[in-house]
Design a protein around this nucleic acid. Structure first.
Length: 171
DNA sequence: TAATGGATGTTCT
DNA sequence: GAACATCCATTAT
């Protein structure tokens, strides 16, 4: 995942994600229909859905599925690769393992906020994805921080990575 | 190492 | 008025 900040490349490998599947998924923002906040989820795939949560943090999702089929992938953690100094400055932290090991931390490290909500990441010069080697050991577990839909194993993370948000995921 | 509570927008009851 | 796709400082074990 690549973020361009003042012509500087700030990037990292995606380590942890969660899937949210619209109408079929009680934990999804889109489960109860379209609102002003979640309308990006109802748009075409490949756009950034950025929302403000718990009164203090932003979370970044990438939409999937065609228009009017709400679904998105929450990016929960990255392993910093380029522009590490910028991330440290944004976070006020030196520990590289803690720079972006959670959805709220990641958006802060990469300076992602509501202004990027709806960004087309296929065409964007500010936020986009590059193809990389897919890690071999990918594990699945329940999603984090939800109260319904817990039985779906829709959290995916690189097994053994020191950059996941929770060392010991709950099954 | 584990539990607690504050910050506080958006949506739902 | 309460819950929530969170994080962190503070306090208790």
């Amino acid at each position: 995942m690549v973020r361009i900040l003042d012509d500087e490349r700030v990037a990292g490998l995606i380590i942890e994600t969660e899937a949210y599947r619209g109408r079929r998924d009680p934990a999804s923002h889109a489960f109860r229909g379209k609102t002003k906040r979640n309308e990006v989820m109802f748009g075409p795939a490949g756009h950034a859905y950025v929302y403000f949560t718990m009164g203090a943090h932003f979370c970044l999702n990438i939409t999937t599925e065609p228009k009017e089929t709400p679904a998105a992938v929450l990016i929960r953690a990255i392993e910093p690769v380029d522009g590490v100094a910028v991330m440290k400055r944004n976070r006020g932290l030196e520990d590289i393992h803690r720079l972006a090991d959670g959805p709220g931390k990641l958006t802060r490290a990469l300076k992602i906020d509501k202004e990027l909500n709806g960004e087309d990441i296929v065409r964007s010069a500010r936020l986009f994805l590059e193809r990389e080697a897919v890690p071999k050991e990918i594990a699945a577990s329940s999603r984090v921080g939800i109260s319904s839909g817990k039985s779906f194993k829709w959290r995916f993370y690189v097994e053994g990575s020191g950059f996941v948000s929770r060392a010991k995921p709950s099954a």
